[in-house]
Write a protein that binds this DNA or RNA. Structure first.
Lengths: 232, 232
DNA sequence: ACGCATTGTTAACCTGTGTTAGCCTCGACT
DNA sequence: AGTCGAGGCTAACACAGGTTAACAATGCGT
């Protein structure tokens, strides 16, 4: 990346903004004129169902960028709310569009970033579709751990996690009560503990085995061990 | 789009290629040097699990383009197999990368296309996470119908669908047997019939009500009817 | 310190979905 | 025509997970 590109990227960012927890930053179907970088605090993107239920798609954590995609589309296809108080850096759509013309190369970088997001959503889909409640929860904890470790927010197999069991249920496609049961089981089996907004992984190998979790680097290998079936 | 851009897009495409059904075009973890446009035939993209299960992510149908994303990343995060015999148009990665520099505007178009894909995956995640078997199946049928209608492959609430119940199960996160039960129920309730590779929707209003399905155009409205809950 | 709201925890019961096992149908091949 | 295999269909049973209903902790505001 050239100096000019970098300085442009810096210019793109507005002043950090503090928002309360539970604030809906983007409403589904709304025109998405703004993207945000999360400097601190957690959020969740989700879709509501006609019956009032909801499915959480992902949890942006500090360092993550959201809404870039919906800037280009007319509207956002899901809502976004903060889970905790947060500091965000808004990015204006107009400037991003200008950037696309000025520095085409950055467009590719952006495409790369959105691809990473999509990979996470796909993994989430696999979890919900084909893993049972405990595997799914274990997988979720491991993924969160790896993501947070990457930005220095997890150490020693321990990290802060401001989610409650209701939110967890909406993310994992389970009922609150069952989340509670599963967490208890993880505790009893001495794999991981979720207490007072802090997750501690006691036995990371055991947890990975349970979840069928492939660390980002190993992910290529594990799949080949699976029994291969043909495509139809 | 300028004439020059259009002709460039045409140049990009190689000769159509005929492939057998059940052919794995992309293997998970593989470097994705090629993208494909499906001219005819169906495919499915999926992830395999260590225990041999799989989750189907999406079904590319004629007119769809796949693999553009994984060309930019080092590797593809999921596999792709044909479901039927198919005619595909391969697109070379090198030429696409060149295109990005030459016509930055097309990069945005590409980003737009991948965003549409992602929206579909998100909807799939919502289905699997928060709809029960019959709602999920109904939703799937409706989505397929709308997609195929768009490319002229569905008419009169009827369309060809070469998927068997095993494949359906892997897509919907259900067991084969349960897919069978659900299809029977849809038939009995005179909502839709899946027979001899052909899906017929008998009562589209009823099916939409059951699925909580929002047509692409109406999708903005329906969600606001849901009971709103705050973001945490 | 008190009361209230939020979140966590547990038990009992019920239902949706998975599992196992088998039979039927149809088309492809010999 | 007969065999074989793939895919569809059904039934009986088992179990994971959902539902309902309490109650216990915790934290917050007054």
């Amino acid at each position: 990346m050239s100096k000019r590109e970098l300085s442009y990227l810096t210019d793109l960012q507005s002043k950090p903004l503090r928002v309360d927890r539970g604030k809906e930053l983007v409403h589904e179907g709304e025109a998405g004129q703004t993207a945000y970088i999360f400097q601190s605090g957690w959020a969740c993107s989700f879709k509501l169902l006609p019956d009032g239920g909801r499915q959480i798609i992902s949890f942006p954590v500090p360092g993550d960028c959201v809404g870039l995609r919906s800037m280009l589309l007319r509207t956002s296809d899901h809502s976004l709310s903060t889970v905790t108080e947060a500091t965000i850096i808004p990015i204006q759509a107009a400037r991003v569009k200008h950037m696309f013309n000025e520095f085409p190369y950055l467009g590719t970088a952006l495409l790369w970033a959105t691809s990473r997001d999509e990979a996470m959503i796909v993994e989430h889909l696999v979890s919900v579709g084909r893993r049972n409640a405990i595997e799914r929860t274990a997988h979720f904890i491991l993924e969160l751990h790896d993501r947070l470790e990457l930005v220095g927010l997890a150490a020693d197999h321990k990290f802060h996690c401001p989610l409650n069991q209701y939110v967890l249920a909406d993310a994992l496609g389970l009922s609150t009560i069952h989340v509670n049961r599963v967490l208890r089981q993880l505790r009893t089996r001495e794999l991981a503990t979720f207490k007072a907004h802090e997750i501690t992984i006691h036995n990371i190998a055991g947890l990975k085995a349970l979840a069928g979790y492939a660390s980002p680097e190993e992910s290529l290998v594990v799949v080949r061990d699976g029994i291969e079936r043909d495509g139809f």
